[in-house]
Design a protein around this nucleic acid. Structure first.
Length: 569
RNA sequence: CGGAGUGUGGCUCAGUUUGGUAGAGCGCUGCGUUCGGGACGCAGAGGCCGUAGGUUCAAAUCCUAUCACUCCGACCA
């Protein structure tokens, strides 16, 4: 196999295509790893393919070690199965749907719980057959409302999913722990700086779940973690205690309606009435499926809609329209409040209960109430509904919280019996009693991991691949390929490295040195060996690591030795 | 799905306001010079200006529709 730049399809670009916004997307396009086919759908060119295979092999290795068995599952899946679990409708427009020539409904699998459970329910009848851990590494399809950031959020993407089937909850715990450990091993081996965090289980269901986050500024998720204990969570689920400032206790006063012309936002209200935003009651109207609900939160806080959905279960939660609000309250948003609202559920954040002599809209345009207290309106209850902030204390140990952005590359779920019950996947236990199988599912976004690695490991010159997933470990660059001695020398190093099983590429292109250096940096080979005049005159080559700026001038034998050492380190 | 924007050669973009022979840089082909951080000269190839209608003597340019793509938001195992 000739691993030479002349023979490999690596179309690097000098300028960044306008379609790209974030580092990984720009660099993967420029360095000749990917090309877009349509929105959120990409072609993987040879270099990307090699990286994907490396990631997959690390994943395979750890899955196999943990007792997983690899399978291939259908990508085209029948609607019937999805109807059995009810997700044919839950998934909504995000599912790619198609019909066959007979008009039967199918979808392109967005995930494989249904398919795998269907398989297992047909074959597993006895506790003797459990546990069983099956996994697949395949394309999955989700018609994202908004695909973006290149491979980060595609509509077609590569994913590893492992599904575990156990006899009971304790056994599921064992499988879950194995997977948690395997994930830690995988992302460590991939050379990524990551963090497992507590998370929301979303539409997939289940109660216990962790996300594995690659830390990067461009990450779409925000996490909080504590330096004093091991607490780490996605902000989506991080619980918040009410922060009640030790203020001077005010006497409760009678509410008063005041004229507040052209005052709409919390900040405007606070400024106009000369109170702090935290004294204001932000009143938000949501449409929960078909029902309108009200959520109250302190003026300086942000709503956490996931928490709202826990308190008021629904499939779809979105802010109500101005028209819907006007119908209920008689006022437009900006002048609405909880006082006097009827026939609508009002959920208040825990902190709302502690607002004394607060401010809220009067449900009359351009009027607000001041001196509002909890007795002035009726709520369903007080719940933790807000988004955690940096001034919050660690929910576990009260320590100082830190926050970071993360790219979700993996998630592990304890599903319990959600799918086994709806799909009737049962077995007979030792006592001959019929029980539902306890399931877990464990996903890794393989193509997203590739993008996350680039996102985390790059500089102004290009990608800096962690060695375990680099497309090639070494590039050998003869400075002047008109110089046949240099070429021969480079060829010799290349051949020797190859003989030692090192993945090396020879840049034998008829290009000027500068072009080859630029491309080497852009593509991000961990090691570069340069063969120049000194190689011929003194037997000295240059050895340079991509992640460092220093160049070592050493003999060819030493360079080869260093490469081998590096590859084994 | 709401808001904003962009579609002109392989890539980056100008030209559109004010209609009148389709441009530049990079890349590509050939020849020559050059050769340690994206060289230079000369000569070339390559575009029914996203698509479809319309207005006009004349449309990349004006009008209408439509498609694609990107960004912000909403949403998201």
């Amino acid at each position: 196999m000739k691993m030479r730049m002349n023979n490999i399809f690596v179309p690097t670009l000098r300028s960044t295509p306008g379609e790209a916004e974030i580092a990984s997307h720009k660099l993967l396009l420029r360095a000749g790893f990917i090309r877009r086919s349509s929105a959120g759908v990409y072609t993987y060119l040879p270099l990307a393919y090699r990286v994907l295979e490396k990631i997959k092999n690390i994943v395979r290795d750890e899955m196999n070690k943990a007792g997983g068995q690899e399978v291939m599952l259908p990508i085209i899946q029948p609607a019937e199965l999805w109807m059995e679990t009810g997700r044919w409708h839950v998934y909504g427009d995000e599912m790619f749907r198609l019909k066959d020539r007979h008009g039967r409904d199918f979808c392109l699998g967005p995930t494989h719980e249904e398919i795998i459970t269907d398989l297992v329910r047909g074959e597993v009848n006895s506790y003797r057959q459990l546990p069983i851990l099956l996994y697949q590494i395949q394309n999955k399809y989700r018609d994202e409302r908004r695909p973006r950031f290149g491979l980060m959020r595609g509509r077609e993407f590569i994913m590893k999913d492992l599904y575990s089937f156990d006899v009971n909850e304790e056994a599921l715990d064992v499988s879950y722990q194995k997977m948690y450990q395997a994930y830690t091993n995988i992302f460590t081996r991939c050379g990524l700086n990551f963090r497992p965090v507590e998370a929301d289980s979303g539409a997939i269901g289940g109660n216990v779940t962790h996300e594995f986050m690659v830390l990067a500024e461009s990450g779409e998720a925000t996490i909080v973690y504590c330096d004093e204990c091991n607490y780490a969570a996605n902000v989506e689920i991080a619980p918040c205690k009410p922060s009640i400032k030790a203020e001077i206790k005010e006497d409760l006063r009678e509410k008063v309606k005041v004229h507040t012309p052209d005052v709409k936002t919390i900040n405007e209200v606070a400024e106009f009435l000369e109170v702090k935003p935290e004294k204001c009651i932000k009143t938000l109207f949501y449409k929960a499926d078909e029902e309108l609900i009200v959520v109250l939160i302190r003026g300086d806080r942000t709503i956490n809609e996931i928490k709202v959905q826990k308190v008021h279960p629904c499939y779809n939660l979105e802010l109500a329209s101005e028209e819907e609000i006007k119908n209920i309250t008689g006022a437009l948003p900006g002048s609405v409040g909880p006082i006097g609202l009827k026939n609508i559920k009002i959920y208040a954040d825990l902190e709302i209960e502690h607002i004394i002599n607060g401010v809220c809209g009067a449900n009359e345009d351009d009027y607000h109430y001041i001196n509002v207290n909890a007795t002035d309106y009726q709520v369903e209850g007080y719940y933790d509904l807000r988004l955690i902030e940096m001034d919050d204390k660690c929910p576990k140990c009260n320590g100082q919280l830190q926050s970071a952005r993360g790219i979700e590359v993996g998630q592990v779920f304890k599903l319990g019996t959600k799918y086994s019950e709806s799909l009737k996947a049962k077995f007979l236990d030792v006592n001959g009693k019929e029980k539902p199988i306890h399931m877990g599912c464990y996903g890794i976004g393989v193509s997203r991991t590739l993008a996350a690695a680039v996102e985390q490991h790059n500089d102004e010159n290009g990608i800096i691949w962690p060695k375990a997933i680099a497309p090639y470990l070494v590039t050998v660059i003869p400075v002047n390929n008109k110089d046949s001695q240099q070429m021969e020398y480079a060829e010799k190093i290349y051949t020797e490295l190859q003989a030692k099983g090192i993945e090396v590429i020879l840049d034998d292109r008829n290009e000027r040195a500068g072009v080859k250096f630029k491309d080497a940096d852009l593509i991000g080979f961990p090691i570069r060996i340069t063969v120049g005049k000194k190689a011929i005159e003194e037997g000295i080559v240059e050895y340079k690591l991509r992640k460092e700026s220093t160049v070592e001038e050493i003999s060819m034998a030493e360079a080869i030795k260093k490469v081998v050492e590096f590859s084994q380190s």
